[in-house]
Computed example of a mutant assay.
Amino acid sequence: MARDGARPAYDPAGHDTDLRAALQEVRTGRWMSMRTLLERTVTWWQWTQRTQVLAAAAAGTDVVRTWLAEEPDSVPAAVMRARVAVERALRARREEHLRTHELWIEAWDLSDAATRTAPKDPVPWVCLLALAQLDRRQLWEEHRAAPPEPMLPPGPWGLLAEAERRDPYNREAHHRMLQFLYAQAASEQLAEAVGYAHWVADTAPAGSALHVLPLHVRVERYRRGGGRSAALDLHWVAEEATREARRAYHSWFEQSLPVEQSPLDLNHLAHALWGALRFEDAARVFDAIGPYYTPVPWTHRTADPGDQAQAVQIFLQARARSRSAPREA
């Protein structure tokens, strides 16, 4: 991609122009473009990503219900109904809404039904895995299954295995598992999440986005530890952090197709490389990002996590510093 100097903006579709067009339709209550887009989606990684982004846009509308009323036997519509229900339940928990439990059970029922409606699809299992974070005391038996490795904690391992059986190394499934571990963690160190992220990255093939997983955990640790302090910049130049950034760059960024690189992963990698003072590598990642900035992780560098303007400014400063490095050499 050309070296884009324009001011970035957040766009959940990123480089996926077809998804962007469908999102615009969904936001106005129309579903035909969503159906057409999903009919043309042939890979599980893109199906997972597109249904997630579409659900976030559709959660505040009745667009999926309208679609199902017109096409009650549509399998993609049934999957999207589960997706939207999960999104609403997770939002309700974040907002401490009184209907959280009701929405959680509704989402579980719809996701469970979707596992039978679309038996080869990993997304219904990803939906069930996403809901596991709401069970913070692990009261549900499916959320306290024995782990595949003795150093890992009990959790929704059966749900993860079902998603992996349908789409090995599914990116969202492992991020949902991380969110479950975050919800269980009492301390800022997130030891179990750290161990899990490294275990996954160690087993992921070249080109897998799971090599970026340790960087996501590091950002969460930074946030919980009271980031946004200049002194904590030392966090990113530590040997382990630098090693994680280099590994993600070489094992994922250099060995994956640009079309498969999510803006969120790219932003985490650019942030880590910049923090580790690996400016030339960071500049290449910023070029791949183009204008598609994501608020996280940059908001964690601001004095106020809600200050989007300051987060954009930090992104621009990091990009400018990284791009200037080759000329300084």
Rank of each mutant, 00 (worst) to 15 (best):
A2M: 08
R3T: 15
G5M: 11
A6C: 05
D11V: 15
H15E: 14
L19I: 10
V26L: 06
R27D: 15
G29Y: 02
M32C: 06
L37H: 11
L38K: 07
Q46L: 15
Q46R: 15
T48R: 13
T51K: 04
Q52R: 14
A59M: 14
G60N: 08
L68S: 10
D73A: 12
A77E: 14
M80C: 00
R81N: 14
A89Q: 07
A92W: 04
R94M: 06
R94D: 08
R94G: 00
E95G: 06
H101N: 04
E102Q: 05
L103Q: 09
L103Y: 10
A107S: 05
R116N: 09
T117N: 02
A118I: 14
A118Q: 12
K120H: 12
W125L: 11
L128H: 07
D135L: 00
A145K: 01
P147M: 00
P150A: 03
L152C: 08
P156W: 03
L159V: 04
E162P: 03
A163Y: 09
E164P: 03
Q179G: 07
F180A: 04
L181I: 04
Q189D: 11
L190V: 07
A193C: 04
S208A: 14
A209T: 01
L210N: 11
H211L: 14
H211M: 09
V219K: 04
E220W: 08
R224K: 09
G226R: 05
A231W: 12
E240W: 11
T242F: 03
R247Y: 10
Y249C: 01
Y249L: 05
W252E: 06
F253I: 06
S256R: 08
L257C: 01
V259R: 13
H268N: 02
A270S: 01
H271Y: 15
W274T: 08
R278T: 08
E280I: 06
I289F: 02
Y292R: 05
P295D: 01
H300P: 00
P305N: 07
A311K: 02
P326C: 00
